[in-house]
Design a protein around this nucleic acid. Sequence first.
DNA 1: TAGATTTATCGTTAAATCGCGATATACGAA
DNA 2: TTCGTATATCGCGATTTAACGATAAATCTA
Lengths: 116, 116
Amino acid sequence: MKAFIQVMKALSDPNRVRVVKLLQQKELCVCEIKEVLGLAQSTVSKHLKILEDAGLVERKRQGTWMIYSLADGSESAYAEAMLLKLSDWLDDDRELAIMRKALPAAALLRTCAVKN
Amino acid sequence: MKAFIQVMKALSDPNRVRVVKLLQQKELCVCEIKEVLGLAQSTVSKHLKILEDAGLVERKRQGTWMIYSLADGSESAYAEAMLLKLSDWLDDDRELAIMRKALPAAALLRTCAVKN
DNA sequence: TAGATTTATCGTTAAATCGCGATATACGAA
DNA sequence: TTCGTATATCGCGATTTAACGATAAATCTA
């Protein structure tokens, strides 16, 4: 029960669901996600930890950056099933479409092409 | 997004998930659920409203009793999919097994065979 | 109609959640 | 080692949530 609830709780916040949907496009670092969602870095970091603890996302260090991607589902069968569902669900979400469009610009942050 | 979040939130509480799992066995009135879960009647009523608003359960009046059952899924595709998943998931939950065993005794409440 | 039973709603309290800024930690470059 | 960047953690308010008891509404029975 606990593992199931953990996945449900992780997916009951719109911003966390957006993170999952964005990661369907490509793996992302925290600063890219922060940029696209328009949240504080600490907030994004906390969301990512909740998603990771639920078995929904994975992370790997790449130099200074921590790269997040969708989990393979080996941690949690519930997470695996929900990720599969989410690969179809919410594709028509308007806000999500806008954020996806903003992804390339946010990616520039990682290539050091833009300073702020 | 809103409808999806509503279903996820509805399923992020252990007691609400238990209600869904119990309703897989048979339709139940509020007092039966209250008895099995060991919660106050007002608490159960509130949980049921959240489940109903999410499209997970339905209700029909039967005399004095309000009978709750699993929804057919026509209200929400998300609810429908989750109910299908939940028909397999969590069947090995220990607490849930105990509650299921307590169902017949709780059902007596509705047949007026027991007073308290 | 009056009383008993069942359920829904209201108001309150304690705990959990989400947001933020500040700070600590980890890494790469100079 | 020192600085700058990226990320994680801590601590704090504001909001939401879950629990309860009290009360209102609906239904059946006498």
